[in-house]
Design a binder for these strands. Sequence first.
DNA 1: GTCTCTGTTCTT
DNA 2: AAGAACAGAGA
Length: 555
Amino acid sequence: NKQPLFTPELTAEEGTLLRCGQNLPVQPGAQYHHSSHCEPPSQNLHLQENPHRDARSAGFQTALSSSSLSGGVNGCHALSSYPIKQEGYKLGSALGDFSGGMGAGRRELDRLSSGGGSGGGEGNLATVLSLSAMAVTVYPFNNEDGSSLLALSPSSRHSARPNTSGLKRRCLSVASQSASEGIDIAANICSSQMSCVNGLRTNSSSPTAATFSHKPLPGPQLPSPSTSSCLLPLSSSSSSSSVSSVEHCEDVGSMQPGPGVGSSEGLGLLIQPGAVLDSCTATLKQEPVDEFSPSEEELFQHHYHYLTSHGSHCGGHSHHHHHHQTGPPRLSMPPPYHLHQYMGSGPGALLHFQSQQQSPPSGLLAQPKPTGLVEQQVDDREDVFSDKQVCRWIDCSAAYEQQEELVRHIEKVHIDQRKGEDFTCFWAGCVRRYKPFNARYKLLIHMRVHSGEKPNKCMFEGCNKAFSRLENLKIHLRSHTGEKPYLCQHPGCQKAFSNSSDRAKHQRTHLDTKPYACQIPGCTKRYTDPSSLRKHVKIHSAKEQQVRRKVRVKT
DNA sequence: GTCTCTGTTCTT
DNA sequence: AAGAACAGAGA
C-alpha cells in the first residue's frame, strides 16, 4: 500500500528533496533550557513553560547517507533545510552551516550546561529529612544479615506483569515487626516520581527522626545519603497511633513498590507493628518486568492489610508538593556498579522506593510500544502526570513536558557525567540489571528504550514509523523498497529476506532444525521459533480442555 | 558510530 | 512460516 514517494528511479537528491523535513518543526534560535533536577526543589524547574528544542536537533539526517539501500534512500544531508532529529543529530555541530541558527543553540546549550544547574543543593534539606532519607535509602545497604529490603521472601521474588489498571491509586501498606530496632515508624512512603517518607517517629514520642537508631553495619555504603526521596515533613502528631501520618501523595506520578516495600519481610527491620508504610501509587506505564518486584497480589495484600487494620486511604490531604520535577536535589551519583551488585541480593531492592514506580515515561503512551521484554506499558494513571516525561534513573525523578527534554536530561545528567566509569543503566526496573555497556554510545542508545526516543524516522510518504536505532530503520526501509539482500543459502531456495534474522529463521525450516519442541506428553511438534511453539501450546491446551469437558459431560 | 549477526516477540 | 519490530552484542 505504501507507495514510496521516490522510487528507485529517482535520484537520491530527488528523493531527498521530496521527503526530507516532514513534520519537523523548526524553531530557529531556540535555546536550550535545561531543567536540571539538581537545582533547588523549590523552584519551578520542572515545568518547561516554553519547551525549547534541543539544539542538537540541528543535526540533519545524515546518518543514512552511507546507507547502501537501494531506491535512493540516501539521506537528507545534502538538501534538507530542516533540522531533522535523526540518529545523526550529533553531527549537528560538524555540519556547520547546515545547522544554521541551531549552532548557536548548541553553544547556548553548552554554556548553560557548563555554567551551573548541577549544584548540589544539599542545604535545602532539613536534617530530619536527611535522616529520614537515610532511613529509607541508606539503611537497606547496611544490613548484614540479609533481612533488610534486600532480603526478599521467595514469594516476593517472582515476576509480575501486573495489569495495574485496577490500581489507579495503589496504596501499599506494610506493617511489620522490628524486633531489633525498637523503632516505631509510621511511615508514609509515597515512592514514585518522588519518594515521600512521611512521619518517622520514635517510641519516645519525639517527633524527630534523630532518635532513629539503626546501627551502622558493615558493607558497602552509599556514596552519600540519597535524598532523592521526597521527604514530607514529619507528622506533627506525637500520638502513638500508627495511623497518625497518613498522608496524601498526590504528586506521585507512579510507583510500584519494589521488593522492599512490597515485602513486609523486607521492611521488618524498620517497621514495627502498627507502623504504616503507605505507598500511594500512580503508574503511568509499566517498565520492564522486574522479576523481583512484588506481584500484584502482594501489593494488594499489603494494601488490604493496611486498609483493614488502619483504615487508611490514599486520598489524604495536605503536603501537596506538586513538583513536576520532583524530589530534592541529587546529592550524588548513583552508586557504582559493584554497589548495585552488592545490593543486588535483591536486584531492584536498591532501586529503593523510586524503583518501585514501574512506569516508563508517558511519552511512550502515545506510541505503539514494543511488546517484548523491555517495557510494558500500562497507562493506568491518565489523570496524573500522563503528560510528563519522567526520568526514572535511580535517585532521579525529574519530569519534563517534552520527551526531548527528558532525552537531553538523561544524556547530560546521567550519561555524560559517567565519564570513565562503567556505562551502566540505572533506570529503575531496567532489565539489564546494572550490567554495564562497554561503550558510552551503547548506553546512550539503550536509554532510548526508556526514554522512548526514536530519532530515526521513516521518510516514506505516509509512513510515520520511527526507530530508536538506525539499523532498524534501514531494515524497515527495505519493506518500502523491497530490497531483500539476504538470500537463503539453502540449495535451490530462492527466498530472500530483508534481514539476516528472518533469513536465519527461514533457513532453519530447511535444516529442520526446530529447537522449540512441544513439551506436552505425546506431542512431537517442533517449531523454529518460540513464538510459534507458544501458539501451538495454547491451541493444544485448549483442545485438551475441550476433550476433558466432553469426557466429563459423558460421564 | 556503523555494520552485522543474532535472538525474541508479536502479528499476519 | 513469513514479516516486522526491537534490541543486545561483537567486530
